[in-house]
């Protein structure tokens, strides 16, 4: 794999994470627990999809084959998507969604903090812009994890359940492969080990305040970054891509 190829992969991972988690969050629109929170969650979904557009547009420029954000979003199949597995899992209840956001936002925050100083100007620019949004995402999801973890008995149980369900999907974030290593060598990408430490510290701190227990399970699922997805992915794409697939000649 050469640097150009790795760079494209890297952008697709960033873009697909945002796109898929944004897609999942957008499913909440109209179904939130109270109007105010419906609006809040959709704001975050909008941020994610906006970021996805930036990353996928950059991917198209880097590739130089004329592919647009929509070509990447609508014309790849499941095995060609590069998002983390945690982003594609179903929303579950509000607590599951909040917990997923929290675990992912923490990772995303530290990742973008490093990427804003990337040697690659395009990546640095998008990361810097996104970081302001992600900063708020993390604040929002952290506060909610604490609120619900330390709220009522019912909410505490639901949040512990959510954490237990999601935990095995967190390891993948820090699992470096050839792409990550190449990007790190070139000072384009982030050091996942460094992020892992920061992630661990912060997640522990918040979960403790939320009176939640970190699961002991140390066996982690992985594969999303390389295109080996859960069964959920196919359904996400079937829904998302239906129109451009059904009417390939149409402009929308």
């Amino acid at each position: 794999m050469n640097i150009q190829e790795a760079l494209l992969e890297y952008c697709l991972r960033l873009g697909d994470n945002s796109l898929i988690i944004g897609h999942r969050m957008s499913e909440w629109c109209g179904h939130g627990p109270i109007l105010e929170q419906d609006i809040a969650l959709i704001n975050i979904a909008l941020d994610h999809i906006g970021q996805a557009r930036n990353w996928l547009t950059l991917a198209g420029e880097l590739e130089g084959m004329g592919r647009t954000e929509d070509d990447f979003a609508y014309k790849r199949d499941a095995h060609q998507f590069r998002n983390l597995l945690i982003t594609e899992l179903p929303n579950g209840n509000w607590g599951d969604t909040i917990m997923r956001c929290f675990l992912f936002d923490t990772f995303n925050f530290y990742l973008h903090q490093i990427l804003q100083h990337s040697k690659h100007d395009g990546i640095a620019a998008i990361a810097e812009k996104s970081l302001k949004e992600i900063n708020y995402h993390l604040k929002y999801s952290s506060e909610w994890v604490i609120r619900l973890g330390d709220g009522t008995d019912v909410s505490h149980k639901k949040m512990q359940n959510a954490l237990d369900d999601l935990w095995m999907f967190t390891g993948e974030m820090f699992e470096a492969d050839e792409v990550d290593n190449l990007m790190l060598e070139e000072s384009i990408g982030a050091d996942l080990q460094q992020i892992k430490e920061a992630w661990n510290d912060y997640v522990r701190e918040v979960l403790e305040e939320a009176t939640l227990k970190i699961p002991e399970n140390n066996w982690f699922q992985k594969g999303g970054k390389q295109g080996r997805h859960t069964e959920y992915m196919g359904y996400i794409l079937a829904e998302m891509q239906f129109l451009p697939r059904a009417y390939p000649d149409a402009v929308w």
Partner: peptide, 15 residues
Amino acid sequence: AHEEGAWVREAAIAY
């Protein structure tokens, strides 16, 4: 949506 959100609203107030 309203019923499934009840525990969320209650927990936020309790907290």
